[in-house]
Computed example of a mutant assay.
Amino acid sequence: MYILECSDGSYYVGSTWDLSTRLDQHMSGTGSAYTSGRLPVALVYSVESDSIREVWEWERRVHGWSRAKRRALIDGRFDLLPGLSANRQATDDGP
């Protein structure tokens, strides 16, 4: 599972077996319709697993997160994650 930060400041969450190739695709504009219109992109987070099911479930979970919760994950602020649940209406002081 990986997170890209797009040129407009938005985050793209995806998963792949080959991160290097997938990043090349995103950076060339062929990775996804979403990122192709928001180049350049930068890899800001990635995690590996041998279980495709685990990675897919993790990706689906992060897709539902707020920007603030994704930023906490990217920054390694795992202590903030429980308090940033969607039902707590977290705010984001990001860029």
Score class of each variant (00 low, 15 high):
Ala33Asn: 06
Asp75Ser: 15
Asp93Glu: 12
Asp18Cys: 03
Leu73Arg: 10
Leu19Ser: 00
Ser49Leu: 04
Asp18Arg: 14
Ser85Gly: 15
Asp8Trp: 04
Ile3His: 09
Arg88Trp: 03
Arg71Glu: 14
Ser28Asn: 11
Met27Thr: 13
Thr16Gly: 00
Phe78Ile: 11
Ala90Lys: 00
Pro40Thr: 05
Ser32Ile: 03
Asp18Asn: 15
Gly94Val: 04
Tyr34Phe: 12
Gly94Gln: 03
Ala86Ile: 06
Met1Lys: 05
Val55Ile: 04
Ser7His: 14
Gly76Ser: 05
Ser51Glu: 03
Leu43Phe: 13
Ala33Phe: 02
Leu80Phe: 01
Ser46Pro: 02
Leu39Lys: 00
Arg60Ile: 01
Gln25Tyr: 06
Thr91Lys: 12
Arg71Ala: 12
Arg88Lys: 12
Ser51Ile: 04
Leu4Cys: 10
Gly14Glu: 06
Thr30Val: 12
Glu5Cys: 02
Pro82Gly: 08
Ala86Thr: 04
Ala33Tyr: 00
Leu84Met: 14
Leu19Arg: 05
Ser15Cys: 07
Ser51Arg: 05
Gly37Gln: 14
Leu23Gln: 04
Met1Asp: 06
Gly29Leu: 05
Gly9His: 01
Gly94Glu: 06
Phe78Gly: 14
Ser28Asp: 10
Ser46Gln: 15
Arg70Thr: 10
Leu39Met: 01
Arg77Cys: 14
Asn87Ala: 14
Ile52Leu: 03
Glu5Tyr: 00
Leu80Trp: 09
Glu59Trp: 07
Gln89Arg: 13
Leu19Met: 06
Ile52Trp: 11
Ser20Gln: 11
Ala72Trp: 07
Phe78Lys: 09
Asp50Gln: 10
Tyr11His: 13
Gly14His: 03
Ile3Asn: 12
Tyr12Phe: 11
Met27Lys: 15
Val13Phe: 02
Ile74Ala: 09
Arg70Ser: 00
Ser49His: 13
Asp79Ala: 14
Thr91Ser: 15
Arg53Pro: 06
Arg67Ile: 13
Leu43Cys: 11
Arg53Ser: 09
Gly94Asn: 09
His63Asn: 11
Arg88Met: 07
Ala90Gln: 04
Ser85Gln: 10
Ser15Lys: 12
Arg70Val: 15
Thr21Lys: 07
